Amino acid sequence: MAATQAASIALPAAANDGVSYARLYGEPLFKLPNDLYIPPDALEIFLEAFEGPLDLLLYLIRKQNFNILDIPMAQVTRQYLAYVDQIRLSNLELAAEYLLMAAMLIEIKSRMLLPVRKVDTDEAGDPRAELVRRLLEYEQMKLAARELDAVPQLGRDYVRTQIYIEQSLVTRWPDVEIIDLQSAWADVIKRARLIEHHKISREELSVREHMTAILRRLQHARFVEFTELFDPARGVPVLVVNFVALLELAKETLIEITQAEPFAPIYVRLAYSPT
């Protein structure tokens, strides 16, 4: 239970430094201002701060080491009413909640003073039982809240640090997906059909020859755009064989197919340095 100390304002006596009444911002004050105004509530004494009537009751019981299962109602009620009388002088709205508990304590005390009949003991039991149950539950919740408050919290007990790690400066080209090759190949076929002439002819095409032609073409350039490896004027059969030759070279890791960024042109280069 946090106790707020009495707030007070004290001016050092003139005898402390020989001349001045006080010090204001480090400077000695030799004469009090004529228009000095001190509000009525400037000096206010705060009693122990409680979170409610149950908190006050629990404080009174634990402070005097009373058994919470056998509360001396007369002594606790007397101390409780003394505190309520003090807060009624300064804060009537706050005292209303405490007065309700005071009425409950007086009722319990009155029921304990009445003669105990056998029928009453069998039906009613100890008049303090309900109050003890509420106090034990409140104390349990209060201890749980204190344990939760002791857990380190972000922003109150520690801060989260952020470390920025510079990534490698080596350029890594994005991997070419199958969908990208399909799209580029569909574009080549589309352009080939636009300029295709209807000719019936028989031509023997060799995938190995086209593989050799592609390798020979790549030896003279560092990068060659994918579409430049195809000549639409030679017809769709030649384009198909040329594309199969390109896939065979990629399968045998003789060429690399790269792309600078998504949706960018696709480039082809040799996977080895020609001697």
Rank of each mutant, 00 (worst) to 15 (best):
T253V: 07
V207L: 09
D180N: 11
A250P: 07
G18C: 02
L58C: 04
D180K: 06
V84Q: 01
V176H: 04
I45S: 06
A3I: 09
T212L: 14
R146Y: 05
M73T: 11
D70T: 11
Q162E: 15
L105Y: 00
L100C: 05
A260C: 04
Y272W: 08
L131H: 02
P152E: 03
A3Y: 11
A271S: 11
L218W: 01
Y21S: 01
I255D: 02
D17I: 07
M1F: 10
Y267P: 01
D41R: 13
V151Q: 08
A145M: 11
P72Q: 01
K199L: 11
D126E: 13
L249D: 05
R202Q: 14
F50W: 07
S110K: 06
Y138S: 05
A124M: 11
D41C: 06
E248P: 00
Y83C: 04
M1C: 07
D149A: 15
M112K: 15
R156K: 14
R88M: 12
T171Q: 14
E107P: 00
A245G: 06
S183C: 06
L54T: 05
L32H: 03
E51Q: 13
Q162F: 08
I108F: 03
T275W: 06
M1N: 08
I165K: 07
L89D: 14
A22R: 02
D17L: 15
A74Q: 14
L24E: 10
Q182P: 00
